[in-house]
């Protein structure tokens, strides 16, 4: 075999390009960490002239940030809960034998995330307009739960597929009724996949900005607060700190979801 053409060894340029690509994906995020500590108030100067932790205290004392954070947590929690219930139901149904309209249903589940967010947002906005529904926390949740269903669904349906139907039958065979089977067999085996789906749904909802701008009215979730700061910067260092918080609030659930499902064939997050 030619020494330069061993098919099981990557060539140096490929290796460099791959690792360079990974770095390209991560370095910008690391920059956020640095900027949260900068002493520069007015510009995005690099390198920072000095480092300080004072902006964390400044952010802590901002009632508007607290308000936005509370709203985001509230919306993400309720939307996740709703998505978990609806997503689990539909994945359980879809995991069963085929039935009429199955393909249409899977398309319907995926649509809110397959179409650009601006369409989901604009559609909800139109519907609220036509029906004279005033914007509120509820309208935000309505939108978020809709696109979170698919996240839970993706995680749960993969687990259902891996779960041999055999153990559900075995449970019934041994005398368990449907509810006992659900509680003792299905839930423990589905648990981590559901939890992972929930984590990802929470992260997605917590971070969502496009649909939210159409359904929030005057209220601000944390991403909306950040977006306003991005367009019209008022206090850049505080925004840097908030960026770090938003990053952490989405990063941790994702990492947790990964560890919950890493032993399965259906590791969480393969489809956003």
């Amino acid at each position: 075999m030619r020494s330069d053409a061993n098919p099981n060894r990557a060539s140096l340029p490929l290796k460099l390009a791959a690792i360079g690509g990974l770095l390209f994906l991560h370095l910008p995020i690391l920059l956020i960490f640095l900027y949260a500590f900068t002493t520069e108030e007015r510009t995005y100067a690099f390198p920072p002239p000095g480092l300080t932790t004072q902006w964390f205290a400044a952010a802590w004392n901002r009632p508007d940030i607290w308000q936005a954070l509370t709203l985001s947590v509230k919306v993400a929690s309720v939307a996740t809960l709703l998505a978990m219930i609806l997503g689990t139901l539909v994945s359980a149904a879809m995991a069963r034998a085929s039935f009429f309209g199955r393909d249409q249903i899977s398309l319907l589940i995926i649509l809110p995330i397959a179409l650009p967010g601006v369409i989901t947002g604009m559609s909800l906005r139109s519907a609220f307009g036509i029906m004279d529904i005033p914007f509120s926390t509820l309208t935000i949740i309505l939108g978020h739960a809709t696109f979170c269903i698919v996240i839970v669904y993706n995680n749960a349906v993969a687990r259902f597929r891996r779960l041999s139907g055999g153990i559900l039958e075995a449970s019934a065979d041994l005398g368990a009724n449907a509810f006992q089977t659900f509680w003792h067999i299905l839930l423990p085996n589905l648990g981590t996949a559901l939890l992972a789906g929930g984590m990802l749904a929470f992260a997605l909802s917590f971070d969502e900005v496009i649909v939210t701008t159409f359904t929030a009215g005057q209220q601000a979730t944390l991403p909306i607060w950040m977006l306003e700061e991005l367009i019209r910067p008022r206090q850049r260092p505080v925004t840097n700190v908030v960026a770090l918080i938003v990053f952490a609030a989405t990063f941790l659930p994702i990492l947790l979801a990964y560890y919950l499902t890493r032993h399965g064939s259906e590791t969480a997050g393969s489809g956003k």
């Binding site: 994906l25 991560h26 910008p28 995020i29 920059l31 956020i32 900027y35 995005y44 690099f46 990802l200 992260a203 997605l204 971070d207 900005v209 991403p223 950040m226 977006l227 991005l230 925004t239 960026a243 938003v246 990053f247 609030a249 989405t250 990063f251 994702i254 990492l255 990964y258 997050g269 393969s270 956003k272």
Partner: peptide, 17 residues
């Protein structure tokens, strides 16, 4: 996976910097 799921807005913000 992490860059895929981490905050969209934060990523955009990083690029603004």
């Amino acid at each position: 996976m992490l860059p895929l799921w981490s905050s969209y807005l934060v990523k955009v913000y990083a690029w603004k910097l």
